[in-house]
Design a binder for these strands. Structure first.
Lengths: 196, 196
DNA sequence: TCCTTATAATGACCGTGGTCACTTTATGAC
DNA sequence: GTCATAAAGTGACCACGGTCATTATAAGGA
């Protein structure tokens, strides 16, 4: 049975997060150095690693926050009513996850649960995405969308194609436009019922 | 205009690759250290980086070889005739790409072309996979598989689901069995012809 | 054979993530 | 207050990937 953390620890934790946020805002995730974070926070290096398992754990928190912000906008937006508007609605999510290689790598590596019960903020967010997609899809099954598959399964598929398209975008150095086109070309057969 | 490499350089390159292969065989990709590779090859550290851009570049070569081996088996195997046998046929590919976190990370990061013309062995292999899938799918479109989508697109979708399932398998600590089931549940709505 | 030049190889050095034995500080019991 | 104990924080240190000015070796021309 461990005690509750002292105020000092909570304050230090907050300072570390704030420092990291500032650095990322001023440069990028890729350029963030643990050494600079602790310098700015006014603590020793060892302190950092007593607060975060490793550098990635900090990135997971920060990126989780960003995804959270995007999702909170999406849940209050009007639901898309066909595949084209669905692709358009996904744009902010694509922009967030594909903003940097570093971000995408972290997202992919942490998109699933880390361990039973030990679910991280990014995995949590991915779960929220599925829930939102289901809310979007289910009412339109039989009309705009196919009805021969579980909506949760369809939602997971959207995620798979989302990831695939962003990954492709990092390799092929093409425009954002191409990404949305490609996403549309995948989601059309995925979400609409197969024609004879 | 650069001259052809000297025999010495070719030999060194081969020694580096052999050393790396031995180390991986004896331990794992994750445990491979550049320092150990050069030690075993009997060259200096700097030499390594004059042969490979970075550690990842070596891993790409080694993993590319492994995927190549798997694919050379697949291309001579009898083509699957329905979705179940397709999933079964994909097993060796799943095993290779999901054998280690390190392997999967490298594969995902290099699955697309690195740059125009500068296509790496893993990206090459992914292209080969698509070609094979097309060869499998096309003849059965209209019977076992849907015919309302480009076979190349369907092939790319198989890859997307493959990656998604392997990624999930690293997070959820479940059995290989679950992976194949999950893959089947994705591929069924993706590939099958409309019911009645 | 000697000289020149391009190629190959070297290893001391650096940056950065991560560790750990130790010091400092807070807390609760008396 | 004072002491014992646990929590918090420290910074020298290590591991390992990667760089670069320098040296060694091979190839070709006179």
């Amino acid at each position: 049975m461990s005690r509750a953390p002292q105020q000092r620890r909570i304050a230090t934790h907050a300072r570390l997060l704030d420092s990291a946020r500032e650095i990322v805002a001023a440069s990028s995730y890729a350029e963030m150095r643990v050494e600079e974070v602790v310098l700015r926070a006014g603590v020793a290096k060892g302190t950092f690693f007593s607060h975060f398992k490793d550098k990635d754990a900090l990135l997971v928190v920060l990126i989780g926050e960003e995804l959270e912000r995007v999702m909170s906008d999406l849940v209050v937006a009007p639901p898309p009513e066909d595949i084209e508007s669905l692709v358009a609605a996904l744009a902010p999510l694509v922009a967030a996850m594909g903003s940097e290689r570093t971000v995408f790598d972290i997202v992919v590596r942490n998109s699933g649960a880390m361990a039973i019960e030990e679910i991280g903020p990014i995995a949590q967010n991915f779960g929220d995405q599925i829930a939102l997609f289901v809310r979007w899809i289910a009412p339109l099954q039989g009309t705009a969308f196919r009805s021969d598959a579980d909506p949760a399964l369809l939602g997971e598929g959207i995620q798979a194609f989302l990831v695939q398209c962003i990954a492709m975008n990092f390799c092929l150095v093409e425009s954002q436009m191409a990404l949305e086109e490609r996403l549309l070309s995948y989601l059309t057969p995925w979400l609409s019922a197969p024609q004879a």
